[in-house]
Design a protein around this nucleic acid. Structure first.
Lengths: 215, 215
DNA sequence: AAAAAACTAAACTGAACCGTATAGTAACTG
DNA sequence: CAGTTACTATACGGTTCAGTTTAGTTTTTT
Protein backbone atom coordinates (compact mmCIF):
# COMPACT_ATOMS: atom_id res chain seq x y z
CA UNK A 1 0.00 0.00 0.00
CA UNK A 2 1.12 3.64 -0.52
CA UNK A 3 2.57 5.40 2.50
CA UNK A 4 -0.21 6.89 4.61
CA UNK A 5 2.33 9.40 5.86
CA UNK A 6 0.83 12.86 5.39
CA UNK A 7 3.87 15.09 5.24
CA UNK A 8 5.91 14.04 8.25
CA UNK A 9 9.39 12.65 8.68
CA UNK A 10 9.13 9.53 6.59
CA UNK A 11 12.23 7.58 5.70
CA UNK A 12 11.39 8.13 2.03
CA UNK A 13 10.54 11.82 1.67
CA UNK A 14 7.89 12.84 -0.77
CA UNK A 15 8.68 15.01 -3.74
CA UNK A 16 7.14 17.99 -1.99
CA UNK A 17 9.22 17.33 1.06
CA UNK A 18 12.35 17.17 -1.04
CA UNK A 19 11.54 20.46 -2.74
CA UNK A 20 10.88 22.10 0.58
CA UNK A 21 14.12 20.86 2.08
CA UNK A 22 15.96 22.04 -0.98
CA UNK A 23 14.60 25.54 -0.51
CA UNK A 24 15.36 25.42 3.18
CA UNK A 25 18.95 24.60 2.39
CA UNK A 26 19.07 27.45 -0.10
CA UNK A 27 17.94 29.82 2.64
CA UNK A 28 20.62 28.51 4.96
CA UNK A 29 23.26 28.94 2.27
CA UNK A 30 22.20 32.50 1.61
CA UNK A 31 22.11 33.24 5.31
CA UNK A 32 25.57 31.76 5.75
CA UNK A 33 26.99 34.02 3.10
CA UNK A 34 25.39 37.15 4.53
CA UNK A 35 25.91 36.49 8.23
CA UNK A 36 29.54 35.46 7.77
CA UNK A 37 30.24 38.55 5.75
CA UNK A 38 28.36 41.24 7.68
CA UNK A 39 27.70 39.85 11.14
CA UNK A 40 24.33 39.50 12.79
CA UNK A 41 23.12 43.07 13.23
CA UNK A 42 24.23 44.31 9.82
CA UNK A 43 22.59 41.46 7.92
CA UNK A 44 19.12 42.14 6.52
CA UNK A 45 16.56 39.48 5.86
CA UNK A 46 15.85 40.98 2.45
CA UNK A 47 19.43 40.42 1.40
CA UNK A 48 19.36 36.91 2.82
CA UNK A 49 16.36 36.13 0.67
CA UNK A 50 18.03 37.68 -2.37
CA UNK A 51 21.28 35.78 -1.76
CA UNK A 52 19.30 32.57 -1.41
CA UNK A 53 17.42 33.26 -4.64
CA UNK A 54 14.18 32.90 -2.74
CA UNK A 55 11.26 35.08 -1.76
CA UNK A 56 11.10 36.56 1.69
CA UNK A 57 7.91 34.71 2.51
CA UNK A 58 9.76 31.46 1.94
CA UNK A 59 12.41 32.49 4.43
CA UNK A 60 9.78 33.15 7.06
CA UNK A 61 8.00 29.98 6.12
CA UNK A 62 11.04 27.97 7.16
CA UNK A 63 12.33 30.05 10.06
CA UNK A 64 10.30 31.92 12.61
CA UNK A 65 12.47 35.03 12.70
CA UNK A 66 15.98 36.35 12.27
CA UNK A 67 17.25 34.85 15.51
CA UNK A 68 15.87 31.42 14.70
CA UNK A 69 17.54 31.48 11.31
CA UNK A 70 20.82 32.58 12.83
CA UNK A 71 20.71 29.87 15.46
CA UNK A 72 19.86 27.15 12.96
CA UNK A 73 22.70 28.28 10.73
CA UNK A 74 25.35 28.51 13.39
CA UNK A 75 24.38 25.25 15.05
CA UNK A 76 24.83 23.55 11.72
CA UNK A 77 28.19 25.23 11.16
CA UNK A 78 29.74 24.44 14.53
CA UNK A 79 29.95 20.77 13.75
CA UNK A 80 31.02 20.89 10.16
CA UNK A 81 33.70 23.57 10.46
CA UNK A 82 35.53 21.97 13.34
CA UNK A 83 35.36 18.41 12.15
CA UNK A 84 36.66 19.45 8.75
CA UNK A 85 39.49 21.33 10.38
CA UNK A 86 40.58 18.41 12.51
CA UNK A 87 40.13 15.99 9.68
CA UNK A 88 37.63 13.38 10.69
CA UNK A 89 37.78 12.45 7.04
CA UNK A 90 39.28 9.00 6.44
CA UNK A 91 41.92 10.06 3.94
CA UNK A 92 43.30 12.68 6.31
CA UNK A 93 44.37 10.34 9.07
CA UNK A 94 47.19 11.56 11.24
CA UNK A 95 50.58 9.85 11.38
CA UNK A 96 50.97 7.16 13.98
CA UNK A 97 54.05 8.66 15.59
CA UNK A 98 52.85 11.27 18.12
CA UNK A 99 55.39 13.99 17.41
CA UNK A 100 54.80 13.71 13.69
CA UNK A 101 51.07 13.83 14.30
CA UNK A 102 51.51 17.07 16.24
CA UNK A 103 53.57 18.60 13.47
CA UNK A 104 50.99 17.56 10.91
CA UNK A 105 48.17 18.96 13.03
CA UNK A 106 49.96 22.26 13.47
CA UNK A 107 50.62 22.56 9.76
CA UNK A 108 46.99 21.77 9.03
CA UNK A 109 45.74 24.41 11.45
CA UNK A 110 48.09 27.08 10.16
CA UNK A 111 46.88 26.37 6.64
CA UNK A 112 43.22 26.82 7.49
CA UNK A 113 43.15 30.19 5.86
CA UNK A 114 43.47 28.42 2.52
CA UNK A 115 41.81 25.11 3.22
CA UNK A 116 38.91 26.43 5.28
CA UNK A 117 38.36 30.08 4.41
CA UNK A 118 34.92 30.04 5.99
CA UNK A 119 36.34 28.97 9.31
CA UNK A 120 37.92 32.34 9.94
CA UNK A 121 34.71 34.23 9.28
CA UNK A 122 32.85 31.78 11.44
CA UNK A 123 35.32 32.23 14.27
CA UNK A 124 34.91 35.97 14.04
CA UNK A 125 31.16 35.60 14.13
CA UNK A 126 31.25 33.37 17.20
CA UNK A 127 33.41 35.86 19.06
CA UNK A 128 31.48 38.89 17.86
CA UNK A 129 28.13 37.47 18.98
CA UNK A 130 29.33 35.73 22.12
CA UNK A 131 27.24 38.06 24.27
CA UNK A 132 24.11 38.16 22.16
CA UNK A 133 24.23 34.38 21.57
CA UNK A 134 26.17 32.83 24.44
CA UNK A 135 24.86 29.35 23.67
CA UNK A 136 26.61 29.58 20.31
CA UNK A 137 29.92 30.28 22.01
CA UNK A 138 29.40 27.46 24.47
CA UNK A 139 28.40 24.99 21.78
CA UNK A 140 31.46 25.98 19.80
CA UNK A 141 33.73 25.43 22.77
CA UNK A 142 32.09 22.15 23.68
CA UNK A 143 32.64 20.92 20.15
CA UNK A 144 36.22 22.16 20.24
CA UNK A 145 36.75 20.25 23.47
CA UNK A 146 35.28 17.14 21.94
CA UNK A 147 36.92 17.33 18.53
CA UNK A 148 40.23 18.99 19.31
CA UNK A 149 41.41 18.91 22.89
CA UNK A 150 40.50 15.28 23.34
CA UNK A 151 42.52 14.11 20.39
CA UNK A 152 45.54 16.24 21.16
CA UNK A 153 45.50 15.22 24.81
CA UNK A 154 45.77 11.61 23.73
CA UNK A 155 48.83 12.49 21.69
CA UNK A 156 50.52 14.18 24.62
CA UNK A 157 49.75 11.28 26.89
CA UNK A 158 51.85 9.20 24.53
CA UNK A 159 54.68 11.71 24.70
CA UNK A 160 55.02 13.18 28.13
CA UNK A 161 52.89 11.14 30.48
CA UNK A 162 49.35 11.60 31.56
CA UNK A 163 49.76 14.18 34.28
CA UNK A 164 50.15 17.34 32.24
CA UNK A 165 48.79 16.03 28.97
CA UNK A 166 45.56 18.01 28.96
CA UNK A 167 47.26 21.26 29.89
CA UNK A 168 49.87 20.68 27.22
CA UNK A 169 47.13 20.04 24.71
CA UNK A 170 45.40 23.30 25.61
CA UNK A 171 48.67 25.14 25.40
CA UNK A 172 49.42 23.65 22.01
CA UNK A 173 46.02 24.46 20.58
CA UNK A 174 46.04 27.87 22.18
CA UNK A 175 49.28 28.92 20.61
CA UNK A 176 48.03 27.79 17.21
CA UNK A 177 44.64 29.44 17.47
CA UNK A 178 46.26 32.62 18.66
CA UNK A 179 48.56 32.81 15.66
CA UNK A 180 45.66 32.24 13.29
CA UNK A 181 43.67 34.90 15.07
CA UNK A 182 46.36 37.53 15.01
CA UNK A 183 47.77 36.84 11.59
CA UNK A 184 44.70 35.92 9.59
CA UNK A 185 41.75 37.45 11.40
CA UNK A 186 43.35 40.72 12.47
CA UNK A 187 45.45 41.25 9.34
CA UNK A 188 48.63 40.74 11.32
CA UNK A 189 50.64 39.53 8.35
CA UNK A 190 50.87 43.12 7.21
CA UNK A 191 51.84 44.44 10.64
CA UNK A 192 54.15 41.82 12.14
CA UNK A 193 54.96 38.90 9.89
CA UNK A 194 55.82 35.66 11.65
CA UNK A 195 57.58 32.64 10.23
CA UNK A 196 54.79 30.13 10.63
CA UNK A 197 56.94 27.06 10.09
CA UNK A 198 59.49 28.16 12.65
CA UNK A 199 56.67 29.01 15.03
CA UNK A 200 55.11 25.58 14.66
CA UNK A 201 58.43 23.80 14.96
CA UNK A 202 59.41 25.62 18.13
CA UNK A 203 55.96 25.05 19.56
CA UNK A 204 56.10 21.32 19.00
CA UNK A 205 59.58 21.12 20.43
CA UNK A 206 58.89 23.12 23.57
CA UNK A 207 55.54 21.66 24.40
CA UNK A 208 56.79 18.10 23.89
CA UNK A 209 59.63 18.55 26.35
CA UNK A 210 59.85 15.89 29.04
CA UNK A 211 58.18 16.71 32.36
CA UNK A 212 61.52 17.41 33.95
CA UNK A 213 62.21 19.61 36.94
CA UNK A 214 61.52 23.31 36.62
CA UNK A 215 64.43 25.68 36.02
CA UNK B 1 48.83 91.33 26.67
CA UNK B 2 45.92 88.89 26.71
CA UNK B 3 46.21 85.87 24.44
CA UNK B 4 45.10 86.74 20.92
CA UNK B 5 44.26 83.10 20.46
CA UNK B 6 40.72 82.91 19.17
CA UNK B 7 39.67 79.41 20.13
CA UNK B 8 42.59 77.32 19.00
CA UNK B 9 44.95 74.96 20.78
CA UNK B 10 46.41 77.32 23.34
CA UNK B 11 48.45 75.97 26.20
CA UNK B 12 46.00 77.60 28.59
CA UNK B 13 42.54 76.71 27.32
CA UNK B 14 39.74 79.18 27.74
CA UNK B 15 36.76 78.36 29.87
CA UNK B 16 34.72 77.76 26.75
CA UNK B 17 37.35 75.40 25.46
CA UNK B 18 37.35 73.49 28.70
CA UNK B 19 33.57 73.14 28.66
CA UNK B 20 33.64 71.92 25.09
CA UNK B 21 36.33 69.35 25.79
CA UNK B 22 34.38 68.19 28.80
CA UNK B 23 31.34 67.55 26.63
CA UNK B 24 33.47 65.87 24.03
CA UNK B 25 34.77 63.51 26.65
CA UNK B 26 31.23 62.82 27.83
CA UNK B 27 30.30 61.83 24.28
CA UNK B 28 33.29 59.51 24.09
CA UNK B 29 32.37 57.93 27.41
CA UNK B 30 28.81 57.35 26.30
CA UNK B 31 29.99 55.97 22.99
CA UNK B 32 32.41 53.67 24.76
CA UNK B 33 29.65 52.22 26.87
CA UNK B 34 27.33 51.64 23.94
CA UNK B 35 29.83 50.40 21.39
CA UNK B 36 31.49 48.01 23.82
CA UNK B 37 28.16 46.61 24.83
CA UNK B 38 26.35 46.31 21.50
CA UNK B 39 29.00 46.43 18.80
CA UNK B 40 29.14 48.90 15.93
CA UNK B 41 26.06 48.11 13.86
CA UNK B 42 23.69 47.63 16.78
CA UNK B 43 24.64 50.91 18.45
CA UNK B 44 22.43 53.89 17.72
CA UNK B 45 23.55 57.47 17.89
CA UNK B 46 20.43 58.38 19.84
CA UNK B 47 21.40 55.99 22.59
CA UNK B 48 24.97 57.26 22.53
CA UNK B 49 23.70 60.78 23.11
CA UNK B 50 21.41 59.58 25.88
CA UNK B 51 24.20 57.59 27.54
CA UNK B 52 26.44 60.63 27.36
CA UNK B 53 23.76 62.85 28.87
CA UNK B 54 24.08 65.13 25.88
CA UNK B 55 21.93 66.23 22.99
CA UNK B 56 22.39 64.62 19.62
CA UNK B 57 23.41 67.90 18.02
CA UNK B 58 26.33 68.03 20.42
CA UNK B 59 27.45 64.60 19.32
CA UNK B 60 27.45 65.66 15.68
CA UNK B 61 29.09 68.93 16.63
CA UNK B 62 32.14 67.03 17.85
CA UNK B 63 32.19 64.10 15.44
CA UNK B 64 31.28 64.11 11.79
CA UNK B 65 29.38 60.85 11.78
CA UNK B 66 29.08 57.46 13.39
CA UNK B 67 32.26 56.12 11.82
CA UNK B 68 34.30 59.12 12.90
CA UNK B 69 33.08 58.75 16.46
CA UNK B 70 33.84 55.05 16.43
CA UNK B 71 37.33 55.61 15.08
CA UNK B 72 38.10 58.34 17.58
CA UNK B 73 36.89 56.15 20.41
CA UNK B 74 38.78 53.04 19.41
CA UNK B 75 41.99 54.87 18.64
CA UNK B 76 41.90 56.31 22.12
CA UNK B 77 41.21 52.93 23.65
CA UNK B 78 43.95 50.98 21.88
CA UNK B 79 46.65 52.79 23.77
CA UNK B 80 45.10 52.96 27.20
CA UNK B 81 43.81 49.38 27.38
CA UNK B 82 47.08 47.75 26.39
CA UNK B 83 49.38 49.95 28.38
CA UNK B 84 47.25 49.43 31.48
CA UNK B 85 47.34 45.71 30.93
CA UNK B 86 51.08 45.55 30.62
CA UNK B 87 51.55 47.94 33.45
CA UNK B 88 53.45 50.94 32.25
CA UNK B 89 52.45 52.40 35.59
CA UNK B 90 55.42 53.00 37.88
CA UNK B 91 54.12 51.07 40.87
CA UNK B 92 53.53 47.97 38.76
CA UNK B 93 57.14 47.37 37.78
CA UNK B 94 58.04 43.79 36.97
CA UNK B 95 60.53 41.79 39.04
CA UNK B 96 64.13 41.94 37.91
CA UNK B 97 64.58 38.20 37.61
CA UNK B 98 63.29 37.18 34.16
CA UNK B 99 61.47 33.98 35.13
CA UNK B 100 59.73 35.75 37.98
CA UNK B 101 58.80 38.58 35.64
CA UNK B 102 57.21 36.08 33.26
CA UNK B 103 55.22 34.51 36.04
CA UNK B 104 54.08 37.91 37.21
CA UNK B 105 53.12 38.92 33.69
CA UNK B 106 51.15 35.72 33.17
CA UNK B 107 49.29 36.18 36.42
CA UNK B 108 48.52 39.77 35.51
CA UNK B 109 47.14 38.79 32.10
CA UNK B 110 45.01 35.99 33.47
CA UNK B 111 43.52 38.40 35.97
CA UNK B 112 42.51 40.93 33.38
CA UNK B 113 38.90 39.87 33.63
CA UNK B 114 38.84 41.47 37.06
CA UNK B 115 41.40 44.23 36.73
CA UNK B 116 40.46 45.33 33.21
CA UNK B 117 36.89 44.33 32.54
CA UNK B 118 36.66 46.70 29.60
CA UNK B 119 39.59 45.02 27.90
CA UNK B 120 37.59 41.92 27.09
CA UNK B 121 34.77 43.87 25.50
CA UNK B 122 37.30 45.89 23.58
CA UNK B 123 39.03 42.78 22.32
CA UNK B 124 35.71 41.41 21.14
CA UNK B 125 34.98 44.67 19.38
CA UNK B 126 38.33 44.70 17.61
CA UNK B 127 37.81 41.17 16.35
CA UNK B 128 34.17 41.71 15.45
CA UNK B 129 34.93 44.81 13.36
CA UNK B 130 38.24 43.66 11.92
CA UNK B 131 36.74 43.62 8.43
CA UNK B 132 34.73 46.82 8.62
CA UNK B 133 37.60 48.67 10.32
CA UNK B 134 40.84 46.91 9.40
CA UNK B 135 42.92 49.89 10.51
CA UNK B 136 41.62 49.37 14.02
CA UNK B 137 42.82 45.78 13.99
CA UNK B 138 46.20 46.80 12.62
CA UNK B 139 46.62 49.61 15.11
CA UNK B 140 45.73 47.23 17.90
CA UNK B 141 48.29 44.70 16.73
CA UNK B 142 50.96 47.33 16.22
CA UNK B 143 50.42 48.55 19.76
CA UNK B 144 50.48 44.99 21.03
CA UNK B 145 53.79 44.47 19.24
CA UNK B 146 55.18 47.61 20.75
CA UNK B 147 53.85 47.22 24.28
CA UNK B 148 53.82 43.46 24.71
CA UNK B 149 55.97 41.44 22.37
CA UNK B 150 58.91 43.80 22.69
CA UNK B 151 59.03 43.60 26.45
CA UNK B 152 58.54 39.87 26.61
CA UNK B 153 61.13 39.28 23.92
CA UNK B 154 63.68 41.09 26.06
CA UNK B 155 62.86 38.78 28.94
CA UNK B 156 63.38 35.70 26.83
CA UNK B 157 66.64 37.00 25.52
CA UNK B 158 67.83 37.01 29.10
CA UNK B 159 66.68 33.42 29.54
CA UNK B 160 67.22 31.39 26.44
CA UNK B 161 69.44 33.36 24.13
CA UNK B 162 68.54 35.74 21.37
CA UNK B 163 67.86 33.31 18.55
CA UNK B 164 64.37 32.14 19.41
CA UNK B 165 63.48 34.89 21.85
CA UNK B 166 60.89 36.58 19.68
CA UNK B 167 59.15 33.37 18.73
CA UNK B 168 59.11 32.32 22.36
CA UNK B 169 57.60 35.65 23.29
CA UNK B 170 54.85 35.25 20.71
CA UNK B 171 54.20 31.74 21.89
CA UNK B 172 54.00 32.88 25.48
CA UNK B 173 51.63 35.74 24.77
CA UNK B 174 49.61 33.62 22.41
CA UNK B 175 48.93 30.92 24.94
CA UNK B 176 47.84 33.54 27.45
CA UNK B 177 45.61 35.47 25.10
CA UNK B 178 44.05 32.25 23.93
CA UNK B 179 43.11 31.19 27.43
CA UNK B 180 41.57 34.57 28.14
CA UNK B 181 39.67 34.41 24.90
CA UNK B 182 38.25 30.95 25.43
CA UNK B 183 37.58 31.18 29.13
CA UNK B 184 36.46 34.76 29.56
CA UNK B 185 35.21 35.91 26.18
CA UNK B 186 33.51 32.71 25.07
CA UNK B 187 32.17 31.69 28.49
CA UNK B 188 34.46 28.70 28.56
CA UNK B 189 34.62 28.54 32.34
CA UNK B 190 31.18 27.00 32.27
CA UNK B 191 32.03 24.52 29.54
CA UNK B 192 35.59 23.40 30.23
CA UNK B 193 37.16 24.81 33.37
CA UNK B 194 40.94 25.10 33.34
CA UNK B 195 43.25 25.53 36.29
CA UNK B 196 44.70 28.89 35.39
CA UNK B 197 47.59 28.75 37.81
CA UNK B 198 48.67 25.34 36.64
CA UNK B 199 48.31 26.51 33.05
CA UNK B 200 50.51 29.55 33.67
CA UNK B 201 53.08 27.59 35.57
CA UNK B 202 53.40 24.92 32.90
CA UNK B 203 53.55 27.59 30.23
CA UNK B 204 56.40 29.43 31.92
CA UNK B 205 58.30 26.22 32.50
CA UNK B 206 57.97 24.88 28.97
CA UNK B 207 58.61 28.06 27.13
CA UNK B 208 61.65 28.88 29.25
CA UNK B 209 63.31 25.58 28.46
CA UNK B 210 66.88 25.84 27.19
CA UNK B 211 67.31 25.81 23.42
CA UNK B 212 68.54 22.23 23.51
CA UNK B 213 68.33 19.69 20.74
CA UNK B 214 64.90 18.63 19.54
CA UNK B 215 63.44 15.29 20.70
C1' DA C 1 -9.27 17.46 -13.18
C1' DA C 2 -9.66 19.14 -8.51
C1' DA C 3 -7.57 20.11 -4.11
C1' DA C 4 -3.62 21.12 -1.43
C1' DA C 5 0.83 22.69 -0.55
C1' DA C 6 4.71 25.53 -1.32
C1' DC C 7 6.30 29.02 -3.73
C1' DT C 8 6.84 34.15 -5.92
C1' DA C 9 6.49 39.06 -6.37
C1' DA C 10 5.20 43.09 -4.36
C1' DA C 11 3.21 45.99 -1.33
C1' DC C 12 2.61 47.30 3.29
C1' DT C 13 3.01 48.40 8.63
C1' DG C 14 5.28 50.17 12.21
C1' DA C 15 9.33 51.11 14.06
C1' DA C 16 14.22 52.36 14.22
C1' DC C 17 17.92 54.69 12.47
C1' DC C 18 21.30 58.50 10.57
C1' DG C 19 21.99 62.88 9.95
C1' DT C 20 20.07 67.71 9.67
C1' DA C 21 17.45 71.66 10.93
C1' DT C 22 15.01 74.89 13.89
C1' DA C 23 14.25 77.52 17.77
C1' DG C 24 15.68 78.78 21.96
C1' DT C 25 18.78 78.79 26.25
C1' DA C 26 23.01 79.13 29.19
C1' DA C 27 27.71 80.56 29.48
C1' DC C 28 31.68 82.96 28.25
C1' DT C 29 34.15 87.15 26.03
C1' DG C 30 35.37 91.82 24.95
C1' DC D 1 25.81 95.06 27.79
C1' DA D 2 26.10 93.11 23.19
C1' DG D 3 28.05 89.37 20.60
C1' DT D 4 29.55 84.94 20.20
C1' DT D 5 29.74 80.24 21.19
C1' DA D 6 28.27 75.88 22.64
C1' DC D 7 24.70 73.80 24.17
C1' DT D 8 19.46 71.63 24.64
C1' DA D 9 15.14 69.92 23.12
C1' DT D 10 12.57 68.50 19.52
C1' DA D 11 11.12 67.46 15.24
C1' DC D 12 11.78 66.15 10.56
C1' DG D 13 13.18 63.76 5.99
C1' DG D 14 14.64 59.91 3.95
C1' DT D 15 16.07 55.43 4.36
C1' DT D 16 16.20 50.84 6.07
C1' DC D 17 14.60 46.98 8.46
C1' DA D 18 11.70 42.88 10.53
C1' DG D 19 7.89 40.68 9.75
C1' DT D 20 3.03 40.29 7.57
C1' DT D 21 -0.21 40.25 3.99
C1' DT D 22 -2.25 39.81 -0.49
C1' DA D 23 -2.86 37.95 -4.81
C1' DG D 24 -1.41 34.86 -7.98
C1' DT D 25 1.59 30.85 -9.81
C1' DT D 26 3.82 26.35 -9.98
C1' DT D 27 4.11 21.72 -8.37
C1' DT D 28 2.53 17.70 -6.24
C1' DT D 29 -1.03 14.68 -4.67
C1' DT D 30 -5.46 12.31 -4.90
Amino acid sequence: MPPADAGGDAAVPSARERRSQHKRQAVLDGARCEFLQHGYAATSMDRVAAAAGVSKATVYGHFADKQALFRALTEAMVGERLSELFGASPQQALPAEPAAALRELAARCLECRHSQPQFLDFLRLVIAESERFPELAKTFLAQLEHTGVGRVTALFEAIAGAAEAELRARLFMGALVHLILMQDLLHGREVAPVDREAYAELLVRLVSAPPGTPG
